[in-house]
Design a protein around this nucleic acid. Sequence first.
DNA 1: CCGTCATATCTATCATGAGAAATTTCACGG
DNA 2: CCGTGAAATTTCTCATGATAGATATGACGG
Lengths: 253, 253
Amino acid sequence: MPEDSTTPTPRRSRPLQVADRIKDWVVERDLKTGARLPSEAEMIAQFGVSKGTVREAMRILEAQGLIVTRTGPGGGSFVGEVTAEKAKALLANYFYFQELSIADIYRLRKLLEPELAAGLAGRLTAGQLAALREIATRYDRPAASPEEEREQHVTSLRFHEQLAGYAANPLLAFCVSFMARMLADLTVYRRLYEPHNEELWARGRSHQIDLVAALERGDAEGARAIMRSHMEGAEDMMQRQEARVMRRFMSAR
Amino acid sequence: MPEDSTTPTPRRSRPLQVADRIKDWVVERDLKTGARLPSEAEMIAQFGVSKGTVREAMRILEAQGLIVTRTGPGGGSFVGEVTAEKAKALLANYFYFQELSIADIYRLRKLLEPELAAGLAGRLTAGQLAALREIATRYDRPAASPEEEREQHVTSLRFHEQLAGYAANPLLAFCVSFMARMLADLTVYRRLYEPHNEELWARGRSHQIDLVAALERGDAEGARAIMRSHMEGAEDMMQRQEARVMRRFMSAR
DNA sequence: CCGTCATATCTATCATGAGAAATTTCACGG
DNA sequence: CCGTGAAATTTCTCATGATAGATATGACGG
């Protein structure tokens, strides 16, 4: 790898240095989620910096989801597992600047969702299957209003997020779940002249129900085929609408 | 979506609130990368909080890659595009806790890399093709030592990152590039009894060279096939070694 | 013995002000 | 015209103290 020796060493602020040392400290000792970190006062003494500097370092780590802090007796800072939610929010900030199109997202969905479905065939518990069925059947009639239609769309994406949550492959799970999240955060401007397509709605719904059945009977290739078809239908539906990604920070709130 | 009304309102610290308001401020005005934010003093007045609180808010936004700050006259805080590097580092923190296996990563690589290659056929400039060739031919002989072999492996992954950088689809580009990065950060413990497989090395190298040729002549399906084959060979190579993901924060340094 | 509520205590949180460090600007001398 | 250095400006760091919130403790009533 070509080392850029002309880099002017972009000065590393003290809070950043402290944050780095704490990260190293955690990794070296292989501290697990929930492990206690030194108190504010101890860090001040340990690193020889002021309280303000320590606090800024803590905010940095907290913003990345690496620690959590609590006040009160027994309080302090603790190693905190980065949640999928947090990771999605942070990653969404990146795509805020990237002008991502619906087509871009669906190009990946069409590759990943069928693979996810196939991998889940015959591996779900009765409870998981029931949860999926509950979501898939939550709306049993076509949307009566644009608001309701949007609600149904979000629910449908919830189905995919739920499904992703069951995957054994964490990377695949995250990618699929992230895409569903991005799509749910779209602002959809329905073309007024585009009539609501009831047939597409019915197909999408039965796809999800059929998919759950295929998963239940362990039919991997069937599940893959259904999902592939489902993705094509969904993309069609999105493309017919004039959808744009809402340009905003998802904000990790 | 089921709203959890039992959520005990997990108190939002003042720095977090200030960070939120600044994000909203940026999004509302649709400020672009490089746009100037109010000075520390102005924010203190604007939000009615102390300097420390404002600074903590800035560190939060900075940790997420959303702003950069400079000292001196004309200095201050500025809207800062989240870089791919930063996004990868933040996301890597998530997988630090997830026990990701080589097989998990390759399952996605086998799906995405061929697609990426196919989409690039006939779309690269002479300069881009030359850059790829330069990386692919950087090592013209089998590795003589374990260190050299690891170096070659990292260089090979650089090839894929470079390729991803040319993709038109930002999501696909990011996923592929991220996976290459994760693999490059692996700690590879070569099995001592496993002899270096010279044939696999030669195949991998010619794959990359053939791929560039296919891309140059606009042969999408050829590129896809070569990449698919290349992925299978690479996975084989990784699996033969005893590789584990290094458990560490990539630290966004 | 067990639950519940007030209270004490522990901890992070928030505020203020002084001074250091960095970086641009601009005047000055070569 | 160019380099050098002083001044101005902005964030950065430190120091200290007061405050608020969460938890544990213990008293009290059932």
